[in-house]
Design a protein around this nucleic acid. Structure first.
Lengths: 188, 188
DNA sequence: CTGGTTATTTGACAAATGTCAAAGGTTTTC
DNA sequence: GAAAACCTTTGACATTTGTCAAATAACCAG
Protein backbone atom coordinates (compact mmCIF):
# COMPACT_ATOMS: atom_id res chain seq x y z
CA UNK A 1 0.00 0.00 0.00
CA UNK A 2 2.79 2.37 0.94
CA UNK A 3 4.66 1.32 -2.19
CA UNK A 4 1.69 2.20 -4.36
CA UNK A 5 1.48 5.51 -2.58
CA UNK A 6 5.14 6.18 -3.20
CA UNK A 7 4.63 5.34 -6.85
CA UNK A 8 1.89 7.84 -6.97
CA UNK A 9 3.88 10.51 -5.20
CA UNK A 10 6.97 10.05 -7.27
CA UNK A 11 4.92 10.16 -10.40
CA UNK A 12 4.70 13.89 -9.81
CA UNK A 13 8.44 14.23 -9.95
CA UNK A 14 11.16 11.57 -10.26
CA UNK A 15 12.84 10.46 -7.06
CA UNK A 16 15.94 8.31 -6.59
CA UNK A 17 15.77 4.91 -4.89
CA UNK A 18 17.68 6.26 -1.96
CA UNK A 19 15.38 9.23 -1.50
CA UNK A 20 12.44 6.94 -1.84
CA UNK A 21 13.70 4.85 1.04
CA UNK A 22 14.29 7.89 3.17
CA UNK A 23 10.82 9.16 2.41
CA UNK A 24 9.33 5.85 3.38
CA UNK A 25 10.46 6.36 6.95
CA UNK A 26 8.14 9.32 7.27
CA UNK A 27 5.07 7.65 5.89
CA UNK A 28 2.64 5.79 8.05
CA UNK A 29 -0.86 4.50 7.60
CA UNK A 30 -3.92 4.42 9.77
CA UNK A 31 -7.57 3.49 9.80
CA UNK A 32 -10.16 6.11 10.57
CA UNK A 33 -13.71 5.07 11.30
CA UNK A 34 -16.67 6.81 9.75
CA UNK A 35 -17.42 9.97 11.68
CA UNK A 36 -13.95 10.20 13.21
CA UNK A 37 -11.50 12.94 12.45
CA UNK A 38 -8.36 12.79 10.37
CA UNK A 39 -7.62 16.30 11.55
CA UNK A 40 -9.36 17.67 14.62
CA UNK A 41 -10.32 21.23 15.36
CA UNK A 42 -7.39 23.21 16.77
CA UNK A 43 -4.98 20.39 16.15
CA UNK A 44 -1.78 21.15 14.23
CA UNK A 45 -1.78 19.77 10.72
CA UNK A 46 1.52 17.95 10.83
CA UNK A 47 1.07 15.72 7.82
CA UNK A 48 -0.23 15.61 4.28
CA UNK A 49 -3.05 13.10 4.19
CA UNK A 50 -3.80 10.73 1.39
CA UNK A 51 -7.11 8.89 1.29
CA UNK A 52 -6.08 5.40 0.27
CA UNK A 53 -9.68 4.26 0.55
CA UNK A 54 -12.80 5.89 1.89
CA UNK A 55 -13.93 9.45 1.71
CA UNK A 56 -13.35 12.61 3.69
CA UNK A 57 -14.76 16.08 4.07
CA UNK A 58 -12.82 19.20 5.02
CA UNK A 59 -14.88 21.83 6.76
CA UNK A 60 -14.84 24.65 9.24
CA UNK A 61 -17.31 26.76 11.15
CA UNK A 62 -17.98 30.31 10.21
CA UNK A 63 -20.52 32.30 12.19
CA UNK A 64 -21.89 29.06 13.54
CA UNK A 65 -22.34 27.61 10.07
CA UNK A 66 -20.74 24.44 8.85
CA UNK A 67 -18.83 25.27 5.68
CA UNK A 68 -17.44 22.54 3.46
CA UNK A 69 -14.13 23.51 1.97
CA UNK A 70 -13.28 20.41 0.04
CA UNK A 71 -14.06 16.76 -0.42
CA UNK A 72 -11.26 14.23 -0.71
CA UNK A 73 -12.12 11.00 -2.43
CA UNK A 74 -10.14 7.85 -2.84
CA UNK A 75 -6.57 8.35 -3.99
CA UNK A 76 -6.72 12.05 -3.29
CA UNK A 77 -4.69 14.30 -1.02
CA UNK A 78 -5.86 16.71 1.62
CA UNK A 79 -4.41 18.89 4.34
CA UNK A 80 -5.00 22.21 6.02
CA UNK A 81 -3.02 24.67 3.98
CA UNK A 82 -2.87 27.37 6.61
CA UNK A 83 -2.17 25.11 9.56
CA UNK A 84 0.46 23.16 7.66
CA UNK A 85 2.40 26.13 6.40
CA UNK A 86 1.87 28.52 9.26
CA UNK A 87 2.17 26.02 12.11
CA UNK A 88 -1.05 27.25 13.59
CA UNK A 89 -3.89 25.26 15.17
CA UNK A 90 -6.27 24.23 12.44
CA UNK A 91 -9.67 25.83 12.06
CA UNK A 92 -10.30 23.25 9.44
CA UNK A 93 -11.49 19.80 10.39
CA UNK A 94 -11.13 16.74 8.24
CA UNK A 95 -13.74 14.12 8.94
CA UNK A 96 -14.00 10.65 7.48
CA UNK A 97 -17.44 10.26 5.94
CA UNK A 98 -16.80 6.56 5.50
CA UNK A 99 -14.44 4.12 7.13
CA UNK A 100 -11.17 5.15 5.57
CA UNK A 101 -7.57 4.13 5.26
CA UNK A 102 -5.32 7.14 5.40
CA UNK A 103 -1.66 7.45 4.49
CA UNK A 104 0.20 10.16 6.36
CA UNK A 105 3.22 11.93 4.97
CA UNK A 106 4.82 13.41 8.04
CA UNK A 107 5.43 17.11 7.67
CA UNK A 108 8.51 17.37 9.82
CA UNK A 109 10.24 14.48 8.13
CA UNK A 110 9.25 15.50 4.64
CA UNK A 111 10.24 19.10 5.20
CA UNK A 112 13.65 18.20 6.53
CA UNK A 113 14.28 15.83 3.64
CA UNK A 114 13.47 18.58 1.17
CA UNK A 115 16.29 20.56 2.74
CA UNK A 116 18.88 17.95 1.98
CA UNK A 117 17.66 16.20 -1.15
CA UNK A 118 17.12 17.99 -4.42
CA UNK A 119 14.76 15.42 -5.86
CA UNK A 120 12.51 15.61 -2.83
CA UNK A 121 12.59 19.39 -2.93
CA UNK A 122 11.38 19.11 -6.52
CA UNK A 123 8.64 16.79 -5.39
CA UNK A 124 7.50 19.35 -2.85
CA UNK A 125 7.54 22.10 -5.45
CA UNK A 126 5.43 20.00 -7.78
CA UNK A 127 2.96 19.01 -5.10
CA UNK A 128 2.44 22.53 -3.88
CA UNK A 129 2.19 24.00 -7.33
CA UNK A 130 -0.51 21.46 -8.11
CA UNK A 131 -2.38 22.51 -4.99
CA UNK A 132 -2.03 26.08 -6.11
CA UNK A 133 -3.63 25.30 -9.44
CA UNK A 134 -6.55 23.51 -7.76
CA UNK A 135 -7.08 26.37 -5.38
CA UNK A 136 -7.01 28.84 -8.22
CA UNK A 137 -9.50 26.92 -10.30
CA UNK A 138 -11.85 26.66 -7.38
CA UNK A 139 -11.81 30.41 -6.83
CA UNK A 140 -12.51 31.08 -10.46
CA UNK A 141 -15.26 28.51 -10.57
CA UNK A 142 -17.10 29.95 -7.61
CA UNK A 143 -16.47 33.59 -8.09
CA UNK A 144 -18.22 34.18 -11.34
CA UNK A 145 -20.74 31.48 -11.79
CA UNK A 146 -24.33 31.23 -10.67
CA UNK A 147 -25.14 28.58 -8.09
CA UNK A 148 -26.56 26.47 -10.87
CA UNK A 149 -23.41 26.62 -12.97
CA UNK A 150 -21.28 25.79 -9.94
CA UNK A 151 -23.40 22.74 -9.37
CA UNK A 152 -23.20 21.64 -12.98
CA UNK A 153 -19.47 22.16 -12.86
CA UNK A 154 -19.18 19.93 -9.82
CA UNK A 155 -21.42 17.39 -11.46
CA UNK A 156 -19.02 17.26 -14.37
CA UNK A 157 -15.74 17.32 -12.51
CA UNK A 158 -16.43 15.23 -9.44
CA UNK A 159 -19.67 13.33 -10.01
CA UNK A 160 -18.78 10.67 -7.45
CA UNK A 161 -19.12 13.24 -4.69
CA UNK A 162 -22.80 13.59 -5.31
CA UNK A 163 -23.32 9.92 -4.59
CA UNK A 164 -21.59 10.00 -1.28
CA UNK A 165 -22.41 13.24 0.39
CA UNK A 166 -25.48 14.85 1.90
CA UNK A 167 -27.15 17.75 0.18
CA UNK A 168 -26.32 20.07 3.03
CA UNK A 169 -22.63 19.44 2.63
CA UNK A 170 -22.66 19.88 -1.10
CA UNK A 171 -24.61 23.08 -0.68
CA UNK A 172 -22.11 24.49 1.79
CA UNK A 173 -19.31 23.50 -0.58
CA UNK A 174 -20.97 25.49 -3.32
CA UNK A 175 -21.66 28.41 -1.03
CA UNK A 176 -25.42 28.19 -1.19
CA UNK A 177 -28.20 26.92 1.07
CA UNK A 178 -29.55 23.45 1.02
CA UNK A 179 -32.95 24.64 -0.12
CA UNK A 180 -31.51 26.47 -3.09
CA UNK A 181 -29.58 23.40 -4.11
CA UNK A 182 -32.65 21.24 -3.80
CA UNK A 183 -34.52 23.61 -6.11
CA UNK A 184 -31.69 23.65 -8.60
CA UNK A 185 -31.77 19.89 -8.69
CA UNK A 186 -35.50 19.83 -9.19
CA UNK A 187 -35.12 21.85 -12.37
CA UNK A 188 -32.65 19.45 -13.96
CA UNK B 1 17.10 47.90 -7.38
CA UNK B 2 17.84 44.31 -8.21
CA UNK B 3 19.79 43.99 -4.99
CA UNK B 4 16.84 45.22 -2.97
CA UNK B 5 14.68 42.75 -4.83
CA UNK B 6 17.09 39.93 -4.04
CA UNK B 7 17.04 40.95 -0.41
CA UNK B 8 13.32 40.74 -0.45
CA UNK B 9 13.29 37.38 -2.18
CA UNK B 10 15.89 35.83 0.05
CA UNK B 11 14.08 37.08 3.08
CA UNK B 12 11.59 34.29 2.40
CA UNK B 13 14.28 31.70 2.71
CA UNK B 14 18.05 32.08 3.21
CA UNK B 15 20.20 31.84 0.09
CA UNK B 16 23.97 31.57 -0.18
CA UNK B 17 26.06 34.27 -1.82
CA UNK B 18 26.84 31.98 -4.69
CA UNK B 19 23.20 31.12 -5.31
CA UNK B 20 22.34 34.74 -5.07
CA UNK B 21 24.80 35.54 -7.83
CA UNK B 22 23.43 32.77 -9.99
CA UNK B 23 19.91 33.95 -9.43
CA UNK B 24 20.86 37.46 -10.40
CA UNK B 25 21.62 36.28 -13.92
CA UNK B 26 17.96 35.45 -14.40
CA UNK B 27 16.56 38.68 -13.13
CA UNK B 28 15.91 41.63 -15.38
CA UNK B 29 13.98 44.83 -15.07
CA UNK B 30 11.73 46.75 -17.39
CA UNK B 31 9.48 49.78 -17.58
CA UNK B 32 5.86 49.33 -18.49
CA UNK B 33 3.79 52.38 -19.36
CA UNK B 34 0.32 52.89 -17.99
CA UNK B 35 -2.15 50.86 -19.99
CA UNK B 36 0.48 48.50 -21.38
CA UNK B 37 0.62 44.83 -20.56
CA UNK B 38 3.06 43.02 -18.33
CA UNK B 39 1.50 39.81 -19.55
CA UNK B 40 -0.56 39.78 -22.72
CA UNK B 41 -3.51 37.60 -23.57
CA UNK B 42 -2.39 34.19 -24.88
CA UNK B 43 1.23 34.88 -24.11
CA UNK B 44 3.14 32.32 -22.06
CA UNK B 45 3.84 33.45 -18.53
CA UNK B 46 7.55 32.80 -18.45
CA UNK B 47 8.46 34.86 -15.40
CA UNK B 48 7.35 35.83 -11.94
CA UNK B 49 6.74 39.55 -11.95
CA UNK B 50 7.49 41.90 -9.14
CA UNK B 51 6.07 45.39 -9.14
CA UNK B 52 9.01 47.49 -8.03
CA UNK B 53 6.95 50.64 -8.43
CA UNK B 54 3.56 51.30 -9.94
CA UNK B 55 0.43 49.22 -9.87
CA UNK B 56 -1.02 46.36 -11.90
CA UNK B 57 -4.28 44.54 -12.39
CA UNK B 58 -4.66 40.88 -13.33
CA UNK B 59 -7.84 40.09 -15.18
CA UNK B 60 -9.47 37.85 -17.71
CA UNK B 61 -12.62 37.72 -19.75
CA UNK B 62 -15.43 35.37 -18.92
CA UNK B 63 -18.57 35.39 -21.03
CA UNK B 64 -17.53 38.74 -22.37
CA UNK B 65 -17.14 40.22 -18.92
CA UNK B 66 -13.97 41.72 -17.58
CA UNK B 67 -13.13 39.91 -14.35
CA UNK B 68 -10.42 41.18 -12.04
CA UNK B 69 -8.51 38.39 -10.43
CA UNK B 70 -6.01 40.29 -8.40
CA UNK B 71 -4.33 43.63 -7.90
CA UNK B 72 -0.60 43.87 -7.43
CA UNK B 73 0.66 46.94 -5.68
CA UNK B 74 4.18 48.18 -5.14
CA UNK B 75 6.58 45.57 -3.84
CA UNK B 76 4.18 42.77 -4.62
CA UNK B 77 4.45 39.70 -6.83
CA UNK B 78 2.15 38.53 -9.55
CA UNK B 79 2.04 35.88 -12.25
CA UNK B 80 -0.42 33.64 -14.01
CA UNK B 81 -0.52 30.50 -11.92
CA UNK B 82 -1.99 28.28 -14.60
CA UNK B 83 0.14 29.54 -17.47
CA UNK B 84 3.31 29.45 -15.41
CA UNK B 85 2.88 25.94 -14.11
CA UNK B 86 1.11 24.37 -17.04
CA UNK B 87 3.05 26.08 -19.82
CA UNK B 88 -0.15 27.12 -21.49
CA UNK B 89 -1.02 30.43 -23.15
CA UNK B 90 -2.36 32.76 -20.53
CA UNK B 91 -6.05 33.65 -20.33
CA UNK B 92 -5.04 36.08 -17.68
CA UNK B 93 -3.76 39.49 -18.63
CA UNK B 94 -1.67 41.70 -16.42
CA UNK B 95 -2.02 45.36 -17.18
CA UNK B 96 -0.12 48.25 -15.65
CA UNK B 97 -2.62 50.74 -14.26
CA UNK B 98 0.18 53.20 -13.74
CA UNK B 99 3.63 53.63 -15.22
CA UNK B 100 5.45 50.79 -13.54
CA UNK B 101 8.87 49.35 -13.02
CA UNK B 102 8.76 45.59 -13.13
CA UNK B 103 11.37 43.08 -12.07
CA UNK B 104 11.22 39.78 -13.90
CA UNK B 105 12.38 36.53 -12.39
CA UNK B 106 12.85 34.31 -15.41
CA UNK B 107 10.98 31.06 -15.08
CA UNK B 108 13.32 28.89 -17.08
CA UNK B 109 16.41 30.09 -15.27
CA UNK B 110 14.83 29.98 -11.85
CA UNK B 111 13.37 26.54 -12.42
CA UNK B 112 16.62 25.08 -13.56
CA UNK B 113 18.49 26.57 -10.61
CA UNK B 114 16.00 24.98 -8.22
CA UNK B 115 17.03 21.65 -9.70
CA UNK B 116 20.64 22.08 -8.76
CA UNK B 117 20.66 24.25 -5.66
CA UNK B 118 18.93 23.24 -2.45
CA UNK B 119 18.65 26.74 -1.08
CA UNK B 120 16.93 27.95 -4.23
CA UNK B 121 14.61 24.96 -4.20
CA UNK B 122 13.68 25.99 -0.66
CA UNK B 123 13.06 29.49 -1.88
CA UNK B 124 10.68 28.18 -4.52
CA UNK B 125 8.85 26.06 -1.96
CA UNK B 126 8.42 29.04 0.31
CA UNK B 127 7.25 31.33 -2.48
CA UNK B 128 4.69 28.90 -3.80
CA UNK B 129 3.39 27.95 -0.39
CA UNK B 130 2.86 31.64 0.32
CA UNK B 131 0.91 31.93 -2.91
CA UNK B 132 -1.11 28.96 -1.84
CA UNK B 133 -2.04 30.62 1.43
CA UNK B 134 -3.08 33.80 -0.36
CA UNK B 135 -5.18 31.88 -2.83
CA UNK B 136 -6.81 29.93 -0.04
CA UNK B 137 -7.66 33.02 1.97
CA UNK B 138 -9.18 34.63 -1.06
CA UNK B 139 -11.45 31.67 -1.69
CA UNK B 140 -12.61 31.64 1.90
CA UNK B 141 -13.14 35.35 1.95
CA UNK B 142 -15.32 35.35 -1.12
CA UNK B 143 -17.12 32.11 -0.71
CA UNK B 144 -18.98 32.72 2.49
CA UNK B 145 -19.25 36.40 2.93
CA UNK B 146 -21.84 38.83 1.72
CA UNK B 147 -20.73 41.39 -0.84
CA UNK B 148 -20.58 43.96 1.93
CA UNK B 149 -18.31 41.85 4.13
CA UNK B 150 -16.03 41.17 1.18
CA UNK B 151 -15.73 44.86 0.61
CA UNK B 152 -15.01 45.60 4.25
CA UNK B 153 -12.44 42.85 4.23
CA UNK B 154 -10.70 44.39 1.25
CA UNK B 155 -10.91 47.79 2.87
CA UNK B 156 -9.09 46.41 5.86
CA UNK B 157 -6.49 44.29 4.08
CA UNK B 158 -5.60 46.33 1.03
CA UNK B 159 -6.98 49.83 1.55
CA UNK B 160 -4.52 51.35 -0.92
CA UNK B 161 -6.28 49.55 -3.75
CA UNK B 162 -9.39 51.59 -3.26
CA UNK B 163 -7.46 54.77 -3.92
CA UNK B 164 -6.03 53.60 -7.19
CA UNK B 165 -8.64 51.58 -8.95
CA UNK B 166 -11.98 52.24 -10.57
CA UNK B 167 -15.19 51.03 -8.99
CA UNK B 168 -15.88 48.66 -11.84
CA UNK B 169 -12.59 46.84 -11.31
CA UNK B 170 -13.04 46.55 -7.58
CA UNK B 171 -16.54 45.26 -8.14
CA UNK B 172 -15.37 42.58 -10.53
CA UNK B 173 -12.66 41.61 -8.06
CA UNK B 174 -15.31 41.13 -5.39
CA UNK B 175 -17.59 39.28 -7.76
CA UNK B 176 -20.39 41.83 -7.71
CA UNK B 177 -21.67 44.52 -10.03
CA UNK B 178 -20.57 48.07 -9.97
CA UNK B 179 -24.01 49.27 -8.95
CA UNK B 180 -24.13 46.96 -5.97
CA UNK B 181 -20.74 48.16 -4.84
CA UNK B 182 -21.77 51.74 -5.23
CA UNK B 183 -24.79 51.10 -3.00
CA UNK B 184 -22.70 49.32 -0.42
CA UNK B 185 -20.41 52.31 -0.30
CA UNK B 186 -23.31 54.70 0.08
CA UNK B 187 -24.37 52.94 3.26
CA UNK B 188 -21.01 53.29 4.95
C1' DC C 1 -12.43 77.50 -19.05
C1' DT C 2 -15.41 74.45 -21.68
C1' DG C 3 -17.18 70.68 -24.14
C1' DG C 4 -16.58 65.91 -24.40
C1' DT C 5 -15.49 61.69 -22.22
C1' DT C 6 -15.47 58.57 -18.57
C1' DA C 7 -16.75 57.15 -13.91
C1' DT C 8 -20.13 56.94 -10.33
C1' DT C 9 -24.61 57.21 -8.36
C1' DT C 10 -29.48 56.60 -8.30
C1' DG C 11 -34.10 54.70 -9.52
C1' DA C 12 -37.32 51.14 -10.82
C1' DC C 13 -37.94 46.73 -11.39
C1' DA C 14 -36.53 41.65 -12.17
C1' DA C 15 -34.16 37.62 -10.83
C1' DA C 16 -31.68 34.87 -7.65
C1' DT C 17 -31.00 33.32 -3.27
C1' DG C 18 -31.97 33.15 1.73
C1' DT C 19 -35.04 32.20 5.77
C1' DC C 20 -38.36 29.91 8.29
C1' DA C 21 -41.67 26.45 8.67
C1' DA C 22 -43.84 22.36 7.50
C1' DA C 23 -44.46 18.13 4.92
C1' DG C 24 -42.72 13.98 2.94
C1' DG C 25 -39.02 10.51 2.43
C1' DT C 26 -35.23 7.44 4.10
C1' DT C 27 -32.56 5.21 7.18
C1' DT C 28 -31.49 3.48 11.59
C1' DT C 29 -32.37 1.24 15.67
C1' DC C 30 -34.45 -1.55 18.83
C1' DG D 1 -41.91 -3.56 11.53
C1' DA D 2 -42.68 0.73 14.02
C1' DA D 3 -40.82 4.75 16.25
C1' DA D 4 -37.26 7.92 16.10
C1' DA D 5 -33.86 10.42 13.88
C1' DC D 6 -32.25 12.35 9.95
C1' DC D 7 -32.45 14.06 5.14
C1' DT D 8 -34.77 16.27 1.31
C1' DT D 9 -38.35 18.80 -0.78
C1' DT D 10 -41.76 22.33 -1.02
C1' DG D 11 -44.20 26.72 0.03
C1' DA D 12 -44.51 31.58 1.29
C1' DC D 13 -42.20 35.45 1.82
C1' DA D 14 -37.95 38.57 2.78
C1' DT D 15 -33.55 40.08 1.36
C1' DT D 16 -29.85 40.59 -1.64
C1' DT D 17 -28.05 41.34 -5.88
C1' DG D 18 -28.50 42.09 -10.91
C1' DT D 19 -30.14 44.70 -15.04
C1' DC D 20 -31.16 48.55 -17.65
C1' DA D 21 -31.62 53.35 -18.08
C1' DA D 22 -30.89 57.88 -16.81
C1' DA D 23 -28.83 61.53 -14.05
C1' DT D 24 -24.72 63.47 -11.80
C1' DA D 25 -20.10 64.05 -10.92
C1' DA D 26 -15.24 63.94 -11.98
C1' DC D 27 -11.65 64.12 -15.28
C1' DC D 28 -9.21 65.44 -19.51
C1' DA D 29 -7.85 67.71 -23.80
C1' DG D 30 -7.75 71.56 -26.47
Amino acid sequence: MVEAYLDRLTHFSPVSEKSRDLLKKHIYTGKVAKGDFILKYQEACNAIYFIESGFARQYYFKNGKDITEWFAGEQEFCFSISSYFKNTPSNLMIEALEDSTVIYLDKKGFTSLTKTHLDLAQLAITMFSRSLIFSQERTESILFQSAKDCYLNLLKKQPHILQQVSLAHIASFLGITQETLSRIRAKI
